[in-house]
Write a protein that binds this DNA or RNA. Structure first.
Lengths: 254, 254
DNA sequence: CTCGCCAAGTTGTATATACAGGCTAGACCA
DNA sequence: TGGTCTAGCCTGTATATACAACTTGGCGAG
């Protein structure tokens, strides 16, 4: 007895489904407003609202006089890029590799159960791996995944596909929440990341939602001397801008 | 010879102006669609679009049957809250105080000029101050401000009003860009923040735009043991959610 | 062959109209 | 007095229509 979805939302879902299934690839042409009027039996204003909102949300790019096109996934979210360190490294023109240090199926205890909103003892998958940029370690990923969300975790070869890419392949990310802190790593972490004694460590703690519930919880350790986390924020109401080149920041060293 | 602004955008600006000038306070009622139809001479659909977009952007809250109301500024942006550490501390129920360690008018050089997109030698205001939470130092703020943006900087009493509050009072923030890194502080920083030798430091480097150009550049040092930076992100296309309680994260200690 | 122009298709905006559904104050009844 | 119901306002959605501006491709004049 759920409320019926508005027609414009059905239209949006219709397009999003075509995009996420791969039927429509980046730069592909999306049906025009008038085509949607005919094939989907809606008024042009309704089709207009659907496409306009998809544009505002970054799914598509619209050009007056030409049409509507699927936008490159990457440009849709700066923070999603951070999710996948392999892409980030590739974008810098470097070579990414990773090595699984440990993986097992466990029963969630304490803080993990709490963070994932599950009962103590629920099945989770635990993974510890190191990411390398040109063979230099840049991230220690300590991740717990809800088993019911990704039952075939144990069969994955995470030396080949990053956990982040694997998970977004199962279902799209809905929400991410993260805390950033600085700290001195313990000896184990220091060894994995090949860090000097006394070197600081940037720690990102992230919880990610999919299908309305938290599905994975990760602690990412980065060597303070080799890593930087950037973000870009435009408050509501500002003109939509393309991401701006960060000039000068990378030259700063205290 | 600029292109005329669309009518719905003029309407949005009209409402935003009333909000940012203080004429409309949080929870105040915004003119209804039909009132806008009469007073602003637009069709109801145009008024609807303006108010709907302001709702999507977080400026107002709309309730079918009751009306449209100015939303609490705070709920509009998690990251804006981070901008003002005084509010953040107050929200935790603690007492904020700050102390100016140094301030002067300078000529921008090197990285500062580069970051602010200005010529070498342009007038900037340099400020160094420490923020305290219940008399415990939690942030060292090292900030440069474009003099032409805020000419009366030297007359401000930054022990009373935070630079962030002062700046947003001049003109609304448009965009912020930041990098986060971890590091070991030098002796001066360590002394200001009352840190142990070898303790890690969370460093936020932020550049903020207003009126289309970078106006201030700041380096914020936080003691790693006493501070955490949290953020919340929902990718486009997800259902809009209220901010979720962070459960468990605060108990994590490595 | 080349240049210019125009027609057709596309998005962007604006309006009038209509109906559904939520909310509330006040009228009205028992 | 207390409960109920309804009129009136509000937002949310859907449609038909209209015009403006932009882009592209093709056609025709020179």
């Amino acid at each position: 007895m759920s409320t019926a979805k508005p027609r414009y939302q059905e239209l949006k879902d219709f397009i999003i489904e075509k995009i996420s299934s791969g039927e429509l690839q980046p730069a592909d042409r999306v049906p025009s407003e008038n085509e949607l009027v005919e094939t989907q039996r809606v008024s042009r204003m309704t089709a207009n609202r659907a496409l306009r909102e998809l544009n505002d949300e970054g799914y598509v790019e619209r050009v007056a006089g030409r049409g509507t096109f699927v936008s490159d996934y990457r440009s849709r979210s700066d923070l999603l890029e951070v999710q996948n360190i392999a892409d980030e490294i590739a974008r810098r023109g470097n070579r990414h590799s990773s090595r699984v240090m440990w993986h097992s199926r466990q029963h969630a205890r304490g803080e993990i159960a709490k963070a994932l909103h599950i009962e103590q003892g629920t099945d989770v998958f635990h993974l510890l791996l190191v990411h390398y940029e040109n063979d230099v370690p840049v991230q220690l990923e300590d991740r717990h995944i809800l088993s019911s969300f990704a039952p075939d975790c144990m069969e994955q070869d995470f030396d080949e596909i990053t956990p982040s890419a694997y998970l977004t392949g199962i279902a799209p990310l809905q929400e991410a929440e993260q805390a950033v802190r600085a700290g001195i790593p313990n000896q184990a972490v220091r060894k994995h990341l090949d860090m000097e004694k006394g070197e600081a460590c940037l720690i990102v703690i992230r919880r990610t939602w999919s299908k309305g519930r938290p599905v994975t919880f990760s602690r990412l350790h980065h060597p303070g001397s080799r890593y930087e986390l950037t973000g870009h924020y435009t408050p509501p109401g500002s003109t939509r801008t393309q991401s701006t080149e960060i000039v000068g920041l990378e030259n700063l060293r205290q």
